[in-house]
Design a binder for these strands. Structure first.
Lengths: 200, 200
DNA sequence: CGCTTAAGATACCGTTCGGTACTGAAAGCA
DNA sequence: TGCTTTCAGTACCGAACGGTATCTTAAGCG
């Protein structure tokens, strides 16, 4: 029977979640290596010793940001896919939902994990963020693909191919987004996938 | 009439091209931010003042490495496409050639430019490496796609869609390669594109 | 040979980096 | 009211950073 007790000592003056949210944006803009602790202090409004006490070293802090980001991202994908519905119509809807999110101010940040796995390769060995993200993303897309043949038999190999195609394509699209492409180019590239889905 | 004259002063003891080649590999492994001048000195075997005299600042040196890399990469694409030949058979051949190169020791490095454009965003404004790379790559792929309909009429919109699909897909594949995927996963993902091309 | 030019090599510059003592301040508890 | 615990804030650490002044060495040219 442990009732929720107020923690001992002086209470924290900052909100951890809000700080992580700001730092996610910061790391996304600048990358890990180009972001100094001074930048982190300025962006968070929290003094350095408090950051170290709460989140550990800069690398551990970044790992926390990444884990949080990964979870949010996968959840977002799941929500889009759930909303999209079955059939090739569902895939089209999903692509449009994806585009709407990508074009939004909050979007266009798909490459944080890829960027991170490049920069931190081998330095955070206990958790391969990139592989985990790839696997989970493919799992989500597989759900979408498995709902394409409404009522018909499904060829497992074909479903796997479609899943890989769509997953890899969206990864490439995130690179395009990240590398400074405009809204129109993103729209055009998504159109290419719409055309392909029409032949499914 | 300027005959090639030996330059005045003490001749250079290192080969510029060889240095750039080594540094390309170094930057690819570590990224720009994570690579210090000490690393560059160690990898190149050239002392720091000589590097600065020859290539300028670290950023300018990196820009030189990137430009060289970009040119080589586009040339490689052109060679693969030229060798692939016409028709959907040509696309299949191109994908196999791409895979062979990607799996080789020399390959698996497709993301240097993407990585760079992330890290140096806004710092080298006179040359948008990423946009240039995207454009040139799409131009190359377009050549491949335009040779698909052997003797038939070609729908420009469809050709554009196929070009965008293939280009974006290959970009995504480079991300997958970069983020630590094995040879088998690359092969499987390429299989997805083979299946799609079969319906062209 | 001397003069000029440019490269090799050492040592060093000021700044910024990630990380941490240390001193006060604010909470719960007795 | 003290005691304990935890956080805020200032100041600081050694190390590494990107970049350079300076001296020595090696080439061409007369």
């Amino acid at each position: 029977m442990s009732t929720t007790r107020a923690p001992l000592g002086r209470p924290r003056l900052f909100d951890e979640e809000a700080v992580l949210e700001r730092l996610t944006s910061l790391f996304w803009r600048q990358g890990y290596g180009a972001t100094s602790m001074s930048d982190i202090v300025d962006a968070s409004g929290v003094h350095k010793p408090s950051l170290y006490r709460t989140f550990g070293t800069k690398e551990q802090l970044f790992a926390t940001v990444l884990r949080r980001y990964l979870a949010q991202r996968i959840a977002m994908f799941a929500a889009l896919i759930a909303e999209a519905g079955p059939g090739t119509r569902g895939v089209h809807r999903f692509l449009r939902l994806f585009e709407a999110d990508a074009v939004s101010a909050h979007g266009r940040d798909g490459c944080l994990l890829v960027m991170a796995s490049n920069e931190l390769r081998g330095r955070l060995p206990e958790y391969d963020f990139a592989a985990d993200y790839r696997e989970q993303m493919r799992g989500q897309i597989r759900v979408l693909v498995d709902r394409v043949p409404t009522g018909e038999e499904v060829d497992p190999a074909l479903a796997a191919a479609r899943t890989d195609l769509l997953t890899t394509y969206l990864l490439g699209l995130q690179v395009v987004m990240r590398s400074g492409a405009g809204v129109d180019e993103i729209h055009d590239r998504l159109q290419a996938m719409h055309v392909t889905v029409d032949s499914w």
